[in-house]
């Protein structure tokens, strides 16, 4: 039993990293009013680029960097389409999502089934030898802790800085922000690129640390769960963070239930994250006040600057 608890606690912390990073990126983009549904494709590109980088250089830091950059480029395509070509954001997000999955398969083509060394664990010394807490909390690579720090930084910037205020103003009313002299297109582009980079780093973590093995399609719907997480968290950083850990835990359900020896069809367990997503989405969305009060007013709407 203790082993199972440790497994779930430790596993949840690691499984949440890709979700949390990508969700923070998507949250910032949506706060500026841009709904980018291409998270799945951006994570896939980041995962492939990151994996190939680590396979070639052995450097995990470089892997995360290249993974983030690759997805940032893809999110740039979304920014160009949705801001400068004024394309419908849903369609533009789907476009880069499909493009990303294709590019990801192309990058990883010659690496199918290969592995890389996982990201090294941080040396915690005697802390790691504490009973339960040691293996559960102090047996991880640096990203497990940096992801939490990233969530804090995003919260701080959005809620406590002038930059955050500007981003939120742009998301609420691009017209007013424009009238006040803020460069709406520039701010939105920056937020989209940040979202892309975070999704890419999340994807790269997935393929080089969480499961350091390349398999085409390994992002496996996580990008869509990330989009849903931002809605669950009603665009509030601590809630989105909590939701990410909840889904990190659910993704371990399959493994832990098999570990406990319960006889449940594996397909039901594989489907459980999606079933839970729908249920939570319904519970949150049925309260229109909760959604309407917190969602950025201009989310998903094309902004046409008037001369």
């Amino acid at each position: 039993m203790t082993a199972t608890i440790i497994f779930i606690l430790a596993g949840t912390l690691a499984a949440t990293v890709p979700l949390l990073l990508a969700a923070m990126g998507e949250l910032v983009a949506e706060k500026s009013g841009m709904l980018n549904l291409g998270v799945e494709g951006m994570m896939a590109v980041g995962a492939a680029a990151g994996f190939v980088t680590v396979a070639l250089t052995g450097s995990h830091a470089l892997g995360l960097l290249i993974g983030g950059l690759a997805a940032l480029l893809l999110s740039g395509v979304f920014a160009i389409l949705s801001i400068f070509f004024m394309a419908n954001q849903v369609a533009a997000g789907l476009a880069i999502g499909i493009l990303g999955l294709g590019v990801s398969a192309g990058i990883g083509k010659n690496y199918e089934g290969t592995t890389v060394a996982p990201m090294p664990k941080l040396p915690f010394g005697s802390l790691g030898e504490l009973p339960i807490i040691g293996p559960a909390l102090f047996s991880h690579d640096v990203m497990v802790y940096l992801a939490i720090a990233a969530a804090f930084v995003v919260w701080f910037v959005l809620q406590r800085t002038k930059l955050g205020l500007i981003i939120r103003a742009v998301g609420e009313s691009p017209q007013s922000a424009h009238s006040l002299g803020y460069p709406v297109a520039l701010i939105r582009t920056a937020c989209i690129l940040f979202g892309g980079a975070m999704a890419g780093i999340g994807g790269a973590y997935l393929s080089t640390a969480y499961t350091p093995l390349w398999a085409d399609g390994m992002v496996a719907g996580r990008g869509w769960i990330v989009v849903a997480l931002v809605v669950f968290g009603t665009w509030i950083v601590p809630r989105v963070t909590l939701g990410a850990y909840l889904f990190g835990a659910i993704s371990l359900l399959e493994l832990s239930i098999q570990g406990l020896g319960l006889n449940v069809p594996s397909q039901l367990l594989s489907a459980s994250p999606y079933i839970v997503t729908i249920i939570v989405l319904v519970v949150i969305s049925r309260n229109p006040a909760l959604i309407q009060l917190n969602s950025p007013m201009s989310l998903g709407q094309t902004y046409r600057p008037k001369g």
């Binding site: 004024m86 476009a95 880069i96 499909i98 493009l99 294709g102 398969a105 192309g106």
Partner: peptide, 25 residues
């Protein structure tokens, strides 16, 4: 050619279509 090329092609088609759509309006 790897099969990924077909997928990339489809993504490119939609991307370029959305960009070109500006000419509709």
């Amino acid at each position: 050619l790897p099969s990924a090329v077909t997928d990339i092609f489809q993504g490119l088609l939609l991307t370029f279509y959305l960009a070109s759509s500006l000419l509709l309006t």
